[in-house]
Design a protein around this nucleic acid. Structure first.
Ligand SMILES: [Mn+2]
Ligand SMILES: [Mn+2]
Ligand SMILES: [Mn+2]
Ligand SMILES: [Mn+2]
Lengths: 217, 217
DNA sequence: ATAAATTTTTAGATTTGTCTAAAGAATAGA
DNA sequence: TCTATTCTTTAGACAAATCTAAAAATTTAT
């Protein structure tokens, strides 16, 4: 059994592994809002527990055991987010912090029953895939909106930034999951994008476009 | 804000206050599965935070602030128990440990939405009353089954013991919430009770009878 | 290749919650 | 009332997770 803190480290190492492998001490420190020295202490401990492989000065990778633990926490996090939005009418920008706590509740029965109660959802309110009880999930082939050219059409199926301010901004522009969009123009000058959504012309910055994920169709 | 541990202490002090006031160090130690010395440390801290009144060697009482904090935890605990039973099909003997964790999730929005989702339940799966958002709840006038005489009739509306083994035992005898019972006889010898429930004669020990709560009618 | 800058680790301290052992206070018995 | 028992508190220690400051390793730049 892992502590609340160990679980948070494992989950963050898991997410960072998708970007760079091995995962470096400072990258963890930045994400977890702590000091590099504290990270070194913790990764030593996780290494002793067989949850990560640690080579001094080189960074860490998850072991199989560490990976499945991390995926289970991600599973719980995303299931709780679905619960909050679908059943308790939370908005997609209100769920993250609460799910951050709920993901640590220890009960397999609870997770499986929750999954069933929610009718086995495949994605969370931000479009992120939910692992099944065996840890399997389809990696969706999503494209950043910022990669599209004028004339391209698609559907918003995810976001790669979960901050409340960002999500509220998208909400205001009707750029929410499931919406069909069509690129009108991409400005050479600053990369900002003009697009159609719900018969309306909208402009978004390149920075915003980078964090909107699209399936072309 | 209180820590997980502080919250557990407050809740236990709250429950023990109903039995004896002030609450003594050893009583807390026994309930919380810890040593008296640890309790002394913690009650000093809770006292400094203004959550309890502490007089050395005399025990503690909750302040208004401590009491309302404790009631809020009890509210969350019981709402989560209702959720687990009503929505996730947990049995009444399976909910306690999970609720013990869930009661510490920090989000007023979550509690209020959960209350609404559950349609503002008044009692939990063990018959215990659920405080409303202002901390008010009706103290039900329940009688221990062990106090009844032969010929007395009533309805099972609560239990004062939440262990899984006890609740499973009641389940087997059909002695669950809402069931009508009638006392046939109380044995002088050992206080054991013979009673009718669902057209069946059943025998229970005095010890079991003590923990079944009845409304006479 | 060597020096400078950056990253990572170690050393030592702090906070929270716990423990054991021993001392101090309250209560009960004779 | 005085002693024995029980209850409670203090003293000192420990594990978990964090921090600052300093040392060591790695990477980058000249
Ligand atoms: Mn978390
Ligand atoms: Mn999410
Ligand atoms: Mn608890
Ligand atoms: Mn209950």
């Amino acid at each position: 059994m892992q502590s609340y803190t160990e679980e948070n480290y494992l989950k963050i190492i898991y997410h960072l592994s998708e970007i760079s492998n091995p995962v470096l001490t400072n990258a963890i420190a930045e994400r977890i809002q702590t000091k590099a020295a504290s990270v070194t202490d913790m990764i030593k401990k996780l290494s002793e527990k067989g949850l990560i492989n640690y080579v001094k000065y080189q960074g860490v990778t998850l072991t199989e055991k560490g990976k499945s633990t991390a995926i289970n926490i991600v599973r719980k996090h995303r299931l709780w987010e679905v619960f909050l939005v679908d059943k308790l009418n939370f908005k997609w920008d209100e769920v993250h912090d609460v799910a951050e706590e709920l993901e640590h509740i220890q009960s397999n029965l609870l997770v499986e029953r929750l999954d069933e109660f929610l009718d086995f959802p495949r994605v969370d309110p931000h479009g992120d895939p939910i692992p099944d009880k065996h840890g399997n999930f389809a990696e969706l082939a999503l494209i950043k909106l910022s990669k599209l050219k004028s004339g391209d059409k698609g559907t918003i199926t995810g976001v790669s930034e979960h901050s409340s301010s960002f999500l509220k901004h998208l909400e205001k522009l009707s750029l929410t999951l499931g919406k069909r969009i069509e690129i009108i123009d991409v400005l050479d000058f600053d990369g900002s994008v003009e697009l159609w959504v719900e018969q309306q012309k909208t402009n978004i910055s390149r920075e915003v476009a980078k964090h909107i994920l699209i399936t072309k169709n």
